[in-house]
Design a protein around this nucleic acid. Structure first.
Lengths: 338, 338
DNA sequence: ATCAGCTAGGCAAACGTATGCCTGATTGGC
DNA sequence: GCCAATCAGGCATACGTTTGCCTAGCTGAT
């Protein structure tokens, strides 16, 4: 149905051999006369030639496809990462293949397989895994097979994959924001956890608990089941409010849940930060909108660095190093000195 | 460098011809004995065989790659669309290729070309174009070439591309939300515009102005330069506040700008909705957080339908139809009767 | 015994590109 | 005027699939 003009047609139109056409269109080092070069370029232009990246990949045994697996692209945490990936990828002539895996390991395995079928140059795992995930081993195996095939794998969180990790220390971030709350004079601090079972949830809770313990406030630390979304933060706070006394501060496992907590408090006419301080983790855009005190994680940089790593390491020779990017405390208006 | 076991190795390991191996692994209708079938499957399993989607695409002359061009994936407007696309794409075995084009036509042209090189099954244009864009013609030409090659192109906004459009009526949405404000008794309404030059900005402003005119309030309609982000809405409102009298209501071209307006007002101790009502357009997640009155656009559905269209129309025979999805008014707490 | 029809499997061409190797022509040095 | 070197270009193979066509054996009907 379509005049998918190929290199042979370009060559014929220019009156040269296919190899010659290929060489001028690729900027090969092989010498080509200016006249021939011009004829080929003109022919390609006239025919609207579009080189088949598929055929090219087949023979060169490498693509410029950058895979990235996120939990949910609608979640700003991941869309910022994806943006970091795509910025460096597309600048290097790569195209990014994105997949939502909904925090399901089986889908991750499936998508990893698809990206392998397409011979992606690399695959970035942006999402966290589960503690004691029964499918972790199967995932690790599929990752290993991909690596043996020359596919670079990078993880943005600590998980049981034998691959380089480019991440930020979420646990220390949680520790630091807790420490900040304590330094403001807060003693009783309630923590709204992330989704149950996730490593990311555990890290953040552990950071909170470690700081409370170090401050001698282990007794005053209270954890509530929650989640990473607005509704979870709101619901958890609605359970906190009717059981006085109110805590001095509420720390949520991430910003969106913190905003949920914030709204729940204000809807109950509890003054923030007058009566209760509220803080989150991540520094998403919404934190800025509502003036939420939080700790900024280098999400964009993590995505960008992961993509750069994949582009710069043509062979799968990189050892499984861990790169830790630093975070930064962002005090805003939802916290105050007690 | 890697044991990228190919079909020929699987065939050899199973002691059959390549064609036979191909047929059992593809579920071909060609008859194959159960014993042979089992041997091939076992061999493929043992060797960790991963079929090359590239080679397959080359001979079958079609890929399962779904292209989508967004302005900025961090913008929730686009991430919701992308999610709609990916949900139906991945369920159909496609993988979605995402590109950020930063509202730049030249980048759009470039990415369209890249997706063409990869022989994407289809490309979805999620972003709006510019009024009188000097590069529109060049973009249209590159789209035409792609279509001639059998690539399905779908646009999610009205723009000068000869392709099917699956969209929502932003102009009428703006009209309806304006009408709602008027029905609440507001007369003087200020409109914060979107980014200058964009068709999407013009549509929304036109809808606002049309409604004000129809209500005999043309004199009371005032437009301010703005943008689609928080900062633009905030800044525009900061210019409105010091010039009394305050308007009865502020309508922003989208939700994020509306939130910026909301915060600017509250920071100036102006009661919303007591003194001034505020409304937006899009119904992004943040609108729900802050209780913003807005109008819901079917972004997820637009993305999903576009992907479905591409998957269901194998040949490029679809005429350039326009599908209009309906929006819905979402009254919340930032508007009140005057 | 013959033959049509079916089953099971193999051969080989094609998809579109890159590239190692070869050839013929031209040049420069002596 | 001869040889080596360089320049310009072509031939052919390989990448990993799919699929049309062919063959060999077998079954059952005549």
């Amino acid at each position: 149905m379509a005049p998918v003009s190929s290199l042979v047609e370009v060559a014929r139109a220019a009156g040269v051999a296919v190899s010659t056409a290929s060489r001028v269109l690729n900027g090969s080092s092989h010498p080509i006369s200016a006249a021939t070069r011009a004829r080929v370029i003109a022919a390609a232009e006239r025919l609207g030639y579009s080189p088949s990246a598929l055929a090219r990949a087949l023979v060169s045994r490498s693509t410029r496809l950058m895979g990235v697996l996120v939990s949910d692209i609608v979640n700003p945490y991941f869309s910022v990462i994806a943006r970091g990936v795509d910025d460096v990828a597309s600048r290097a002539g790569y195209v990014t293949m994105l997949s939502n895996v909904d925090r399901r390991t089986d889908i991750e395995i499936n998508r990893m397989k698809t990206m392998r079928d397409y011979r992606a140059a690399g695959v970035i795992f942006a999402g966290s895994g589960y503690v004691d995930d029964p499918q972790a081993q199967e995932l690790a195996a599929s990752v290993r097979q991909a690596q043996e095939q020359g596919i670079q794998v990078v993880s943005l969180t600590m998980r049981d994959l034998d691959c380089p990790v480019i991440t930020s220390d979420a646990q220390t971030a949680a520790y630091d924001i807790t420490d900040h709350l304590i330094s403001l004079g807060h003693r009783r601090i309630d923590f709204i956890e992330g989704p149950p079972g996730m490593v990311a949830s555990k890290q953040r809770r552990d950071g909170f608990l470690a700081c409370m313990r170090d401050a001698g406030l282990a007794e005053a630390a209270q954890c509530h089941p929650g989640g990473f979304d607005y509704e979870a933060g709101h619901a958890a706070t609605m359970r906190i409010i009717p059981r006085p006394p109110l805590p001095d501060a509420i720390l949520a496992a991430n910003d969106e849940a913190a905003v949920g907590a914030l709204n729940a408090l204000r809807q109950a006419h509890i003054d923030v930060p007058g009566q209760v301080s509220v803080a989150g983790i991540d520094d998403l855009r919404v934190a800025q909108f509502v003036g939420l005190t939080t700790v900024s994680l280098p999400l964009y940089e993590m995505g960008a660095m992961a993509a750069r790593h994949i582009i710069d390491n043509p062979t799968g020779t990189g050892s499984a190093t861990t790169t830790m990017l630093s975070h930064r405390l962002i005090p805003r208006e939802t916290t105050a000195r007690r």
